[in-house]
């Protein structure tokens, strides 16, 4: 059993840590709520873009556009989305695991790949790997992902796909299923695909201005940007939610540790008192 002074200082340091983790938990909780709300806000946009594209699909003109034409995949561009900071439980580790699975699959199929890393932890991880081409890295994205970085990522991916330096673009992000469940997933960005939804009956032959190709490109761009936007929002919500859970369990552990240490300290103090008393009474006995 450690001395009382040692135990006291340990208790103090653990309670300080607890205060910090508690504060981080609160911060993450409030950020998560905001992120969760915004994560929902992009849904109508995605839905509307899908609706418009399904008009094109109904008329069979989607497949002429280069963004929708799948070609044999020789090089793949992976966009890895992770956090800028650690201490978010398994958030970064899960995204990296999914990323490694994709890399291994590519290696097995003889597909070359490039990576765009979003988040400081992601770029740190990717630069440590061998034989990986880092095409770009972005960090410190603001809370609202509708920013210059977002357009830069999108345009990089689009340019690479159009120039045929890559044949497919995938995003690896953490899907926010609920505040308890978040899963790292891979989603295809280019070539653009979509599930064919029912074409509304009240859509007669519409006019397309200035031209079908023009409108199709604008609609496809919107769909793709909505997908990337959603991925960023989901990742953010997941990050905050996982950080909150991690900090909550850290706080709980600290509380437990403080309790254990306090018990040990009280025992040590009691032991010391008992020993002193025994010594005194032994002394008295010896004198008499």
């Amino acid at each position: 059993m450690g001395s009382i002074r040692q135990l006291k200082s340990r208790i103090r340091s653990v309670s300080n840590t607890k205060q910090i983790t508690k504060a981080m938990q609160m911060v993450a909780a409030s950020k998560m709520r905001r992120a969760q709300e915004t994560a929902k806000s992009a849904l109508p946009y995605t839905q509307a873009a899908l609706d418009i594209l399904s008009h094109f699909a109904a008329q069979g003109i989607v497949w002429n556009h280069p963004w929708f034409v799948a070609r044999p995949v020789k090089t793949r561009l992976l966009i890895l989305i992770a956090a800028d900071k650690g201490l978010a439980g398994a958030y970064n580790a899960n995204a990296f695991k999914e990323y490694l699975v994709q890399l291994q699959a590519d290696r097995k199929n003889g597909v070359a790949n490039q990576t765009i890393a979003v988040g400081r932890k992601a770029s740190q991880f990717v630069t440590r790997l061998k034989n990986v081409v880092l095409a770009g890295s972005y960090a410190d994205l603001p809370e609202n992902p509708e920013c210059a970085q977002f357009h830069a990522i999108l345009q990089t991916a689009q340019a690479a796909y159009e120039a045929e330096t890559v044949d497919a673009v995938d995003i690896i992000f953490t899907e926010f299923v609920s505040s308890m469940t978040q899963t790292a997933t891979t989603q295809r960005l280019f070539p653009a695909g979509f599930t064919k939804s029912e074409v509304p009956g009240n859509m007669p032959e519409a006019k397309y201005e200035p031209s079908v190709g023009h409108v199709l490109k604008a609609a496809a761009y919107r769909l793709i940007s909505a997908q990337l936007f959603q991925a960023l929002l989901d990742s953010r919500a997941s990050e905050h939610s996982m950080r909150m859970m991690a900090m909550k369990s850290a706080t709980d552990n600290a509380t437990e540790l403080v309790d254990d240490l306090t018990l040990a300290m009280n025992k040590a103090r009691q032991g010391a008192i008992t020993q002193e008393l025994t010594e005194i009474s032994a002394g008295v006995e010896a004198m008499s």
Binding site: A48, D51, H55, N202, A206, A219, R222
Partner: peptide, 16 residues
């Protein structure tokens, strides 16, 4: 910039 979709009874404008 954005897309405009006009159908019967509905005008939908999708913008950045």
């Amino acid at each position: 910039g954005g897309i405009i979709e006009i159908t019967v009874g509905l005008v939908r404008i999708l913008v950045d």
